[in-house]
Design a protein around this nucleic acid. Structure first.
Lengths: 133, 133
DNA sequence: TTTTCAATTGCAACAAAGTTGCATTTATGA
DNA sequence: TCATAAATGCAACTTTGTTGCAATTGAAAA
């Protein structure tokens, strides 16, 4: 489906800025930060607008917050290529780069205490990437 | 082992501030933020000192960064009560409270891509706690 | 196509989180 | 107890994120 339709279906105007942010996400190789959105944009996007666009996309679950090793949150498109919300990530402790882990899954053993409701599982593997090891 | 000895064994001076930060950690029921350290301290700790103490403890692995759902990092004592670094956490999306998950473990299925070295696994379950559901 | 109007953007100002340099204080070993 | 390196507190700064408001723009109706 076209980005424009995705936005409209969620009741969001298909503005240049929003379409560009989606393009940056599609173009990225993994979860990205607010800063990376701005740096990788062809348009001059205002910092505040990026925060607002990200928040709007989060609320509509067009994107979601991936568990990042570092200080700043990283976001990625929800359901990209059929991936569900809960795929695990890898973060290199040397270069800080975070990528999606394909072909790896995690299984829960044991039950949550009574009364707790699990909605989403976030897994991050920290270690060294091939370049940094 | 006494907190004082833990510090000395890592080559850190056993100052009042550091001992108090350790006391706050021991007193806490789960991972805590910089702000919570300051708020729960009996001493008047300077904000900057808390950042420096936390960083020193992180480097020595006296504490580690627990995967938090929210915006700010949360820390907890390493190896507390025999727990290893990698125990999973639960974060409530309503009240934001993060707690340690006991009696739950996660098993990996599948291999990392060639060249990647996994050192630590961080798991966060997001959902609703008994109070908020 | 043009008009209209709410939604969105950019800017300025602010708030919160984290860092750095430096003078003062403190823990520890001699 | 004394000397000294390590740690602290303070001021100033950077980075990250938020809010209010005026100007702009997308989209629906005329």
């Amino acid at each position: 489906m076209k980005a424009e339709d995705v936005l409209k279906r969620h009741g969001l105007k298909a503005t240049k800025s929003r379409l560009e942010v989606i393009r940056v996400f599609l173009d990225s190789g993994g979860p990205i930060s607010h800063k990376e959105i701005i740096e990788n944009s062809m348009l001059r996007l205002d910092r505040v607008s990026v925060y607002r666009i990200v928040n709007a996309f989060l609320k509509k679950e067009i994107i979601h917050n991936a568990y990042s090793g570092g200080r700043n949150p990283l976001f990625e498109l929800t359901g990209r290529g059929g991936a569900n919300h809960c795929h695990p990530h890898f973060s290199c402790r040397m270069c800080g780069k975070t990528t999606c882990l394909d072909g790896v899954a995690f299984y829960q053993k044991g039950q949550l205490k009574k009364g707790y409701i699990a909605e989403r599982q976030k897994v991050l593997i920290e270690g060294l990437c091939p370049k940094c090891r």
